[in-house]
Design a protein around this nucleic acid. Structure first.
Lengths: 337, 337
DNA sequence: CGCAGCATAGACAGCGCTGTCAAGATGGAT
DNA sequence: ATCCATCTTGACAGCGCTGTCTATGCTGCG
């Protein structure tokens, strides 16, 4: 184990005080270029790395960003982490991941970790983005947070999201463009803000194309494979079938795909299927799923950015938020009617 | 924001010195029961939480465990995290997640974070468990680590794993027990230690049952959906088909399933399919996949345990390691021959 | 009754850094 | 040459804890 080398070693090596080394490290102004170079050379020579505990104890930054999640799909979680970390690394921040069970006592889970860690900020993923107790705990402890894809309460704190309504609108238009007129829709979990927006996008697109939407062509799902499976059984059970089904997430679309397989329906020959999210599962199927790619990586990165650079919200001004672009991913599960 | 309350507040409240509070917090001996109770009452009353930065700066523990990963399946990563965190929470530890790109410069990625964070230990997941540069960097910095499912070099450091050979052996026996005699096998990524063990388990079971293994019934795969798909096309292409295919991970098994669907083969009526891992994808398909459940959660928990309680390896003694139990999960994709 | 020996508690010095404040250096305007 | 404003640097005091060392109280034993 290499002996720990501290700021004092660097100061000695470069012939300045530790305070000056600190200044160089933190890119503070008012350091002569010449001095800065000497210090940086010493840092490089000694391979010096500031100790994060000392930094956060003495200063106001902890160099720690938290990610709270509650068991959405693993692919989503991992994507968020990767997106956030990519940005954090550049600034010397690290990521603390904390699963939060939204059905258990929030206070008990969140407050202790907030107090012990004193993180600089927390990234909230759905469904935590809309969990009142979580937001309240964060606010009480004075820890800044950014929500990813919140469903409501948009003026309360900064957030990052995509336009779910528009994405669903465009997916529906894609289907209509393929010649489909009888398009069924499977709604997502009603507690999930995005689910309602996607539903709206579907209705808007159908209306704009003057296509009627029969009541029995819209089924309620819960974002799970099983709920998609069951909805598809109703939709495809009789002889009167839609020519396309748009499930508002991939898991449900996969459920539809499974029913189609059982029924020996050719996809996309006899039935087009569209999903939403572009989870890994979308490619782990045959035919591969036409879906919407969420900019998860970018959203998490943007959230980390806001947190690291301080989200100083001016009094009265709306919180600084961002809407990022999605992408329609057309694969093999959709075809002409 | 609640004003930060410190050990001094607790000391004042309970009428003892801060050192005594520290003793109670750290469960040190030689504190009268009466005193301990008073302190604990004050801690509870004030909702005091020790500051982790101060603790790690002053003491030798950082209360931080790292998890290094390099993009195995998201489900695997998330499972490891959840398993490790569950254990860490009980002891007041937190988890730092760090993706490590094994194809890039390891030194550059790992050394800085080890120096700045001074974590108490690191959990390595495959394929990092067998990455020489990662192990070397950890050892040079003197950071203890526990490997999950390492492929070799078992005497070098502690590890946690399961018996992949035995699991594959039992899955093969499950198939044989169902009456199958012509069982094909798809090998996993050759760099992955576990892949070879699974292959061995298959061969051992076939040999022990006096069943011949034809060369053209064993295909090389890479643990990916596509490689499973391609292997299945070869295996199922002609009229002379095996009655069962054992793919040595779920992604490949799903590839086989996709081919079976295209070929309109009834699963499990005309073809039984078995996977390995029990990823979420195993249930996101129809019929659901018979597979092997890895004790990922438990392995990660055990690894965290070792790290938190110090893995003091005696000179010359083998590193303390564990082999945990797997579970055969029989679902609908396998049936009688 | 005196004292070793242990259990219990506190004083105090840092851990490695940043924030504050003050001192010295520099330069331009007068 | 003088003075002030500005730039550059350093001394020093903590941040909130733990480790070490010392002081006290108490026990039991000769």
């Amino acid at each position: 184990m290499s002996a720990k080398i501290t700021i004092h070693d660097v100061a000695r090596e470069s012939g300045v005080s530790i305070k000056t080394v600190s200044r160089v490290l933190n890119r503070e102004p008012n350091v002569k270029a010449d001095t800065r170079d000497r210090v940086q050379a010493a840092v490089a020579a000694l391979k010096y790395r500031p100790n994060i505990s000392a930094r956060s104890l003495a200063g106001s930054k902890a160099y720690l960003i938290g990610v709270f999640f509650d068991n959405p799909s693993p692919g989503y979680v991992t994507d968020v982490q990767l997106g956030a970390i990519a940005r954090c690394r550049q600034e010397g921040f690290h990521l603390i991941v904390e699963p939060v069970d939204s059905t258990a006592d929030i206070e008990e889970q969140v407050a202790p970790m907030l107090a012990t860690l004193r993180m600089d900020g927390v990234i909230l993923t759905p469904p935590l983005s809309d969990h009142p107790a979580v937001l309240a705990a964060l606010e009480r402890e004075g820890v800044p947070y950014v929500r990813i894809a919140p469903g409501g309460d948009l003026d309360r704190a900064p957030w990052v999201s995509m336009d779910d309504r528009l994405a669903a609108y465009e997916m529906t238009r894609h289907l209509i463009g393929l010649g489909h007129k009888d398009i069924a829709f499977i709604i997502g979990h009603p507690d999930h803000g995005a689910a309602m927006q996607r539903r709206q996008g579907y209705f808007d697109a159908m209306r704009d194309a003057d296509l009627p939407v029969r009541d029995d062509r819209v089924e309620q799902g819960w974002f799970s494979f099983r709920s998609g499976f069951e909805a598809a059984e109703k939709l495809l059970g009789g002889a009167d079938r839609p020519t396309a089904i748009f499930a508002s997430n991939d898991d449900m679309a996969l459920g539809v795909m499974a029913v189609a397989n059982r029924l020996r329906l050719d996809v996309p020959g006899q039935l087009s299927i569209a999903g939403f999210d572009d989870t890994p599962g979308a490619k782990i199927t045959w035919p591969q799923l036409t879906t919407v790619r969420q900019p998860i990586h970018a959203m998490a990165g943007a959230a980390a950015d806001m947190l690291m650079h301080g989200v100083d919200q001016e009094e009265g001004a709306p919180p600084p938020s961002q809407v990022l672009d999605f992408e329609l991913v057309v694969r093999e599960s959709t075809g002409t009617a």
